[in-house]
Design a binder for these strands. Structure first.
Lengths: 188, 188, 188, 188
DNA sequence: TATGAATGAGAGTTCATTCAT
DNA sequence: GATGAATGAACTCTCATTCAT
């Protein structure tokens, strides 16, 4: 039951927004009562926090796996991370929407916890760029900080428009992005 | 008074979110009463719509001006648009936050009006890329659609982190972005 | 202007009800402002009272004229009153609706004023019945009080269903009523 | 509690009118909170509709029972219906007031439901008159439609003035009414 | 004559949460 | 494990009325 409530909450928060989704909506959709919700969760915000935690911990773990892979150079690692993020938007689009859109509804304490992890993700990404610069894979004159923000922004923004049921696969988009990021759009 | 209410609404919607900001908050912050709010506006959503319209109409007009400039090539036009968007985030950051975050709170009728205009902006940007490809300014093998979405995503995302009072100016960021977009990060 | 406001109020109170009609509705329908309303009337209830007064004074005067007519016997006088009431519903249906339906929205002081006049009308009608009984026009065993209430009720109720634009004229209905009242429905 | 709220609503709607009675009034009178009201009812109008339905269904059922009684002729059936209506006004005067006065506050959908049932009642009454005419109990030259409207109007109107605690019983009034209706007031 | 800005009280309704059972 | 009754605070919005101009 706990899992059912959790999944249905993701569904409805993603579809209609956190503030717009009442606990009544959630329990009605499951045919149970509000009491049941409060038996498993202490507040609506707690569920939002769990969604956030699950999402960010998941991509942090995946990022770490990619970073530690000894068989890939930095270009490939960045490609893998972009792929991973796009796949994430594809398979858990609702969670992604909630993660990127409903942050503000977390309590201050929870919010800073999440911020820390988001920063961690971004900094690790930035470090890959810096290591690639040292190794000569990337241009030496980059601003790694803004580059990281720019590339991640490009990818994250996709949750606004990317449609898992549309004609483009996550990998297709990821490949176009990495080409864009590596080579730019200027004709040589 | 109408303007005061409008500006304060932008302030509070931007700071705390649309759903989280009550009309009571707005009028309390101005030392007037709820009646005053409803004397000037017919609903809370009407204000949200006006914020959206003002924002999108403004950047559409600015985009048009840039597009029609006969003294600039396509690289420069795209740079100008990126600059313009960043400047927009700088000077009306609250409106930008609201524009990118609170869309969902518009009524269906209003929402589709805004969608149309957002699409218009994106398509015009994409056309610049395509014209630049024809002219030989940009690589011929680009996917102009995804490229447009990617570049605009990168820029738009900045509203999440860009701090007008921080050490980086909007132009600085825009220059880094355009370098990234034109040349990519790969070492030659 | 005062008259315009008065007439439009009758219109809207009759159509939508007193409580459901706001002063805003009234002035909007006339293209003026609320200030104008309060320039001519001191309150919404005052208008309601004036509607009531005009209506009841009008039918009281008409009743008096009928009662004093020396050329008619009591049967005829009662017939004339029924006719007059039906005609009233026909030509000022909105006022009638308001008169019969919105009484409760008068202040206590005003209400008792109206009650007095309504009682006056009923009592005068009852007196006609009693005089007719003495004269031998009507049965001697009537309960004049209930008879008056019953007959007036029958006629007044018509405002619920009588449609001035329908197939039946006010006189037609009045004739059927008086036949009913005089002769009953039982076969001889 | 649900019943308590229902009964108190009848009380207050009847006393002060539907629009004039706020939910706050209702719950204050019961010492509960507005939340409680909305736990049991979805809107103020829903309660109004339930009052209407209960009232009209009740008198429709009672009318049917009278119509189907094989031991009574049409005169008697009509008398029984008048008695029943008067008794109804006596024992549930508040509901009657609401039923006859607050119809307009129903939503369109609900209103037409009630109209149908009111029409059904009236038509069945009219049919009794017509059957009585065929049987020779009533005059053959009646306009059954207007007669039905007139008689029911006379009875219904009683809710305006009939006082259950007054000197006249419901049966007394009903008897006077039926005498009036059957025999008329004219001296033979 | 008429306006327009502003008020303040109150309307119906929603909702996260509590808690005895 | 789950319910159902109840709360209380907050919500958006309405409206009759006032008053300086």
């Amino acid at each position: 039951m706990k899992d059912k409530i959790f999944e249905k909450s993701i569904d409805l928060f993603g579809e209609n927004g956190f503030s717009e989704t009442s606990i009544q909506h959630i329990v009605d959709a499951l045919g149970v009562t509000k009491g049941t919700f409060y038996y498993y969760f202490t507040s609506k915000e707690q569920i939002l926090m769990e969604i956030h935690l699950r999402f960010i911990n998941d991509i942090l773990a995946k990022q770490d796996a990619i970073i530690q892979d000894p068989n890939r150079n930095y270009q490939e690692k960045i490609y893998e991370i972009i792929c991973m993020l796009m796949k994430n938007i594809e398979v858990q689009g609702k969670s992604a929407k909630i993660f990127f859109r409903e942050m503000q509804n977390l309590s201050d304490g929870h919010l800073s916890q999440i911020f820390e992890k988001r920063d961690e993700f971004r900094i690790k990404f930035q470090e890959l760029i810096e290591l690639g610069m040292e190794k000569g894979e990337f241009r030496k004159d980059l601003d790694s900080h803004i580059a990281a923000l720019g590339i991640l922004g490009m990818v994250n923004w996709s949750y606004h428009w990317f449609d898992p049921d549309g004609p483009l696969s996550d990998t297709t988009v990821a490949k176009i992005y990495i080409d864009l990021v590596l080579n730019g759009i200027k004709a040589e």
